[in-house]
Structures are given as C-alpha cells and as structure tokens.
Simulated assay, not measured.
Amino acid sequence: MLKKTIAISVMIVLLFVSAVACGKSDGNKAAAPDASGNQGSGKAVKLRLGHITGESDAWHKGALKFAELVKEKSNGTVEVEVYPSSTLGNDRDLIEGMQLGSVDFALVAGVLSNFYEPFSILELPYLFRDQDHMEKVLYGDIGTKLKADLLTNAQVRGLDFWVRGPRELTANKKIEKVEDLKGLKIRVPEIPASIAAWKAMGASPTPMAFGEVYSSLQTGVIDAQENPFALIASNKIQEVQSHLMLTNHVYGYVLLTMSDITYQKLSPDQQKAVEEAAKEATTFENDLVAKQEVELLDSLKKDGMEVVELDTAPFMEKAKTVHGEFAQKYGQELYDSIMNVK
C-alpha cells in the first residue's frame, strides 16, 4: 500500500513538472497570430537612425519627421532616435552597422556603390539631364529594382529615395573653364565613378570621409570639395572656401535605408508603419529641399561666397569619357535604361 501511495505521489510530481515546462516552452515561441492574422508581439522598441549632416540640414528635418510619423503610425510601439553629424559614424560605418544590426536606419547615398556596385552608375557626373530626369528614374521601375537588388546583395532595405539639390564645386579660387581644374586637390566621396570623372576633368580627386572635409580645407590638405548647397551651408564650408561654382555635375539622392535584421524583428503592423512613414517623410523632405535651394544660395552669397556661373558643356564632355567604362563594368543595361527615360 505504501509503495502504491509513493508511486502515485511521484506521478503527480512528474505531471506538475511537465506542465510547468510546457508552459515555459510555449512562452518562448513566437506570438500567435492576432485577430487580424498578424504574427509578432508588436512590443515597444527604440531604434536608431544615423546620418552625416548637421541639424539644420533637410536630411535631419526629414529624419525627425520620419521618426514622428513612425511613432504615430505604430501607436507608440516604435520610437526612432535620430543621430546627426556622423554621431554613429560615417556613411560606410552606417551601412556596415545596418548589415550587423547595430544601426537600424541611415540616410546614405553614393557610398552604397561599395556595397552594391551598380549604384556607381548613379554617381556618374552628368548622368542625368536634370532633376526631372533623375526623379523619373528613381521613382520608376529602375529605382524599384535598385532597391530590391540592394536588399538581395547587401541585406540593406531601401525604404525610399529622397531628392537633394545638385552637387556644386567650391574652391578658394575662381574656376571658369575645365582647364582651371588641373591639379586641383578636390575631396570626393569614396565612389569610383566620382574619382574617375574628376580625374578625366583634370583634377586630383582625394577620397575622404565627409566628417574630415572642413578641417582638411582649413589646413590645406585639400583645395576644394563638391556638395549640394545644403551640405555646404550646414557644415559651414563657406568659412573655409571663397568661391562656389554652379557646375550642377550630379543631380543626387539620399536613400532612407533600414537594416533588414531590424526589419525582420518587427511585427507586420510595425513594418507597415515604418513603410508608410517613409513615404510621407519623402514628400515632406522633397518639398523642403525644393524650398530651401533658393534660400540657401542667397544665404551663401550673404556669407561672402562668390558665385560663379559657367558653361558646363566642356566639363560634361570630359566627364562623359568615363561613362562607357562604368556602364560596361557595372551594368550596360542599367545605364542604357537610364539614358532612355524621357
């Protein structure tokens, strides 16, 4: 009788332990679909967005708008903290951080070509006829395919392209013709297409992280740099450069990107909130850039920069001598499709 009682007691204890273990195991599984069929718990998360520009730049204001919209659309379950001025690193650091999952979002542009080479073609000086041509490319089938291919090849998710003003040349002397570029030490991003084109135009391009540009101009390590009005003004390049040449050599973009590691951790509702916020923030930023272009040029003039309008045709002719090489290397079909957009 005693043996039977002990056996029954042991069975009860084993059943209790088994039930507790099952309960713990279930707690570690992914949350069951909610009433709408969505997976994921939708728990509140804080994410980080980095970029290289200052707080007065349209990128930063667009990023803050994006953060506001994400919080609103996710009902407060996703908060985005914005880190300007290369706080989280330069462009390359930000992209590598997204690949590792240590950075959640970033605003990046040409350096993407180091992670998915066909983006090099977008960086070719005098590729786009004008701003309208660029927007038709980026917001059409070509831009959609580039974002999909970036995800496949670099595990970085392109949310949306933001437009920026055209890149212009600054220096401490007046440059009126392409021959004036001879031997000019000009800072360029770490982008092969940009380096090759400036060499073809006669300059001596020096690849450098943007965070080093101001001090390098100040100390004479470099003579010149090229960027849109917004980056020139927000980083006070006018304090160390006297002349602004309206070369309009690159009609550029910045891509709002997201770590795919981070994206996959969000619930479907949170993913949708991020994607919708990206679209609305794009409209906000693009409108802001268009408004600021006139204001920024006026501001740079008031700060003492001499603005030089020049005939860009000779610059274009030299720069285009490298187009064929990059088209052949990184995608003739992509290059031709861009050229054929009307």
Rank of each mutant, 00 (worst) to 15 (best):
N172Y: 00
L169Q: 05
I12C: 00
A278P: 01
Q238Y: 15
G143R: 02
I338N: 03
G76E: 09
K199S: 03
G183E: 10
A230Y: 00
H249P: 06
K320M: 08
E226K: 08
V137C: 04
M208T: 14
L15H: 01
R92C: 08
L49W: 03
N227D: 15
A273C: 02
A277W: 00
S36V: 05
I12H: 05
L169E: 01
S194A: 13
E285M: 09
E168I: 14
D287I: 06
L138W: 07
T283G: 14
T170K: 13
L94W: 09
S18G: 12
R92V: 14
T219H: 10
H51W: 01
A106Q: 12
V178G: 00
Q264T: 11
A230Q: 04
H323D: 04
F66W: 06
L127K: 08
K173T: 07
S41R: 12
P166Y: 12
Q218W: 00
S267P: 01
R92I: 14
K43D: 14
N153M: 06
D57M: 09
T283D: 13
G54T: 00
T87E: 13
P125I: 14
Y83Q: 05
D336F: 04
S337Y: 07
Q292M: 13
K291W: 06
N248Y: 07
K4G: 10
A290L: 13
A19H: 10
M339W: 03
Y251P: 07
Q328R: 12
K3P: 07
S18I: 12
L150I: 12
A44Y: 09
E176F: 05
I52W: 00
G23H: 02
V13T: 00
E317Q: 11
G143T: 03
I6G: 02
I52G: 08
P118F: 02
L150G: 01
K177S: 10
N340C: 00
